[in-house]
Design a binder for these strands. Structure first.
Lengths: 254, 254
DNA sequence: AGCCTGATGATTGTCGACAATCACAGTGGT
DNA sequence: ACCACTGTGATTGTCGACAATCATCAGGCT
């Protein structure tokens, strides 16, 4: 029985996965969410094959719908599609990880500079509220919420800046980052320190764009540096135990 | 008879449309190409509805394949999908145009700085060859090739820089730019002056990254400024005559 | 005359079935 | 014992048909 590996709808990763501009039936977004979070939370190990019919059974829909969802997941780089072979959970290489964070540096420095130049566009209230939510999630030990909110903070910044192209692009980069962090888990549990987020807001409110950019650069660098890029690139890493306490059932299909 | 509006395979826009990372049957890329170039060349006017079955007849394939192609086109922003309503050729607003070029500034300045810091990564030979091809196309009055090569120059730079994420993102931005230029055609025929491309290469070869960035900034600014952003955003602009000499047959469906 | 309402035609969304393709196991040969 | 080959099972790719939805138009009501 492989069905129980995936958690159906209840645990929604909210904004993080409402990605493509097309209008999409809510049903499909739910499935997208479920698979996405299952991957990010390592219930689906990189390299795992995702079989359309099995997924169809799990979610009670036909293969056609699943197929569409898989196409979307492949587009954001969370899974890999191979012609006539199927869908596999992506296994980002170290080089890929480097490129993702390099791209984030490019995009997010530009975003934060833009916002800081506008003195926060008057929207720092939402930022403060968000950081507060992050702190609360961390305090109550909700690991999943903490990780999710950390990513959403960056998307919130993009939304404030206002460029839909950059926001959309950043959405895929943040999604990929989530997978990367899952594959190369930081040695120490610092993730996306909310202190650094607070420092970013402070620089923005001060209208000091150079400092804001520097803060963002340091922040992303810190996250990247804490990755545990030790694992051999090709080996199917075994990370079951790491999340042992959180995962209801063990291994995925084969 | 609406079939003859689209030109089947022969005129391939090469690299510009080999966009998604997934492996894709060559057949579908051909269809993608055909529709893409038909839109960029304004044989399909913005706002035109693309009916799946008609397209299926034109290309001799089933609706399922067409559907996949439409999803890809929608993803790059060339067409718009509306639930239960169908696919429409996108009609980029002025604000959208601004955002596209703002995003290009962000991404391409970073790319050119990176290349220039590496003294061109030793790949300036390919750049020279490309600019030469651009000049030749322009000399022999091949408008289509000229426009296509102009866009590909920027993608070539991205490829040299090496970050796959940025390259992929820029591909969608360049595609959108093509549509934008088609919708808001430059008053004077300057498009993407190859002189500016040559200047970019010179700065890169000199290893002067600041100048290279400035050059890129000016170049993109010039292209954007030459857009004719006069047309009312909502009106279905009629630009048939503009390309009259080049278009074999007149109007699209209805 | 203008507006709301209901029927009609066209188009998209979804499903199930068949064909094409691939991975794997078993067999035979060297 | 190892390698190449063929047959088998499983999975994906593709197609055609049906159901759901929307736009349009005619008719009746105010």
């Amino acid at each position: 029985m492989t069905a129980t590996v995936l958690t159906p709808p209840h645990t929604a990763a909210a904004d993080l996965t409402a990605n493509t501009p097309e209008i999409r039936s809510s049903d499909e977004t739910d499935i997208y969410e479920a698979i996405f979070t299952a991957i990010v939370e390592q219930r689906l190990v990189p390299g795992t094959r995702l079989i359309e019919e099995q997924l169809g059974e799990v979610f009670g829909v036909s293969r056609a719908r699943i197929r569409k969802v898989l196409a979307n997941l492949a587009h954001t780089g969370i899974i890999r599609l191979e012609r006539n072979r199927g869908a596999f959970v992506a296994r980002p290489s170290q080089e890929e990880a480097r490129q993702v964070f390099e791209a984030r540096q490019v995009v997010e420095q530009a975003i934060i500079r833009s916002i800081a130049s506008d003195h926060g566009s008057g929207a720092t209230r939402a930022l403060h509220r968000h950081v507060k939510a992050e702190a609360e999630a961390r305090q109550r030990g909700d690991r999943r919420a903490t990780i999710r909110l950390s990513g959403e903070f960056h998307l919130l910044l993009a939304g404030i800046q206002g460029n839909a192209m950059l926001t959309e692009f950043l959405r895929t980069l943040v999604s990929r980052s989530s997978l990367i962090i899952a594959v190369y888990p930081p040695s120490i549990e610092t993730a996306c320190s909310h202190d650094e987020h607070a420092a970013l807001i402070a620089a923005v409110e001060a209208g000091n764009s150079d400092q804001a950019v520097a803060e963002m650069s340091r922040h992303l660098e810190a996250v990247f540096e804490q990755l545990n890029l030790g694992g051999a690139p090709g080996t199917p890493l075994d990370l079951h135990q790491i999340f042992a306490g959180l995962v209801p059932r063990g291994r995925p299909t084969r």
